[in-house]
Amino acid sequence: MIHRFTLLAAALVALTWVAALPPANAAERLPYDAAALAAAQKAGKSILVHVSAPWCATCKAQKPILDKLAADPAFKDMVMFELDFDTGGEALKALNTRVQSTLIAYKGEKESGRTVGDTSSGGIEALLKSTL
């Protein structure tokens, strides 16, 4: 009886862990790191930097749109970086960003677009498509 319970518990833990993994065909989501951004740019990747703040209502409205697009197979090779506006400091200056809810798109080292405060799924999708 204990053996069955242990196997069942282990299976549930494994299933929970696997379910928490992002889909294999989803965009890579990372906390912002200047070196990782530079490496992705040098590799010619499609990149999005989302400058957000936990208290920002606009950023909260952007998040489900970005989550949905990140799961879209069209953007499976994209790298998405999250940059916290409150702690961004020098990174914000380097990216020439002055406000939260900023989305910056790159195709490799070239900036392909930028938007501030956009919460329309069509507008955000168009920005992401500019990186393909």
Rank of each mutant, 00 (worst) to 15 (best):
N25H: 15
A14K: 02
F75Y: 14
K93Q: 11
A53H: 03
A14P: 01
L21V: 01
L15E: 02
L127H: 03
L103P: 04
R29N: 15
I124L: 06
A57V: 06
A19E: 03
N96E: 14
G113S: 10
R98Q: 14
A39R: 15
L8F: 15
I65M: 04
P73S: 06
R98K: 13
S112C: 13
A26E: 13
L83F: 07
I2E: 14
A19I: 00
L37E: 08
L37Y: 11
T131V: 02
A34Y: 05
V99Y: 15
V116I: 15
Y106W: 08
V18M: 09
H50R: 12
R29L: 15
A26L: 12
G122V: 03
G89Q: 03
A34T: 12
F85P: 01
A24I: 14
A11D: 00
A57N: 06
A24D: 14
P64M: 00
M80G: 00
I47M: 08
L66K: 04
V79H: 08
A126V: 07
L8G: 15
L15Q: 10
G88T: 05
L92Q: 05
G44T: 13
L95G: 10
L83W: 07
I104C: 04
F5L: 15
L21D: 02
T119E: 09
C59L: 05
S120P: 02
V18P: 00
I2Q: 14
H50W: 08
R29H: 12
K76L: 00
L95K: 09
E125N: 08
R4Y: 10
A24P: 05
L83S: 08
V79D: 03
V116W: 12
E28D: 13
L15S: 15
A35Y: 00
A74Q: 14
G108M: 02
A70G: 11
L69A: 01
V51C: 09
A61E: 12
T6C: 05
A40H: 07
A27H: 08
R98L: 11
S120Q: 06
S112K: 09
I65T: 01
A35T: 14
G108H: 02
I65P: 00
L37S: 10
D84C: 01
S112N: 08
L48Q: 02
G88Q: 04
V116K: 09
T102C: 10
V13G: 07
M78G: 07
A24K: 04
L66R: 07
P73L: 04
R98S: 14
P23H: 09
A53K: 00
K60N: 10
G117A: 02
D84K: 11
S120R: 06
V18R: 14
S101Y: 07
D33F: 10
K60E: 12
S121I: 14
S120A: 04
L7Q: 05
E82M: 10
N25A: 15
T115M: 12
P64I: 03
A91E: 11
S46Q: 12
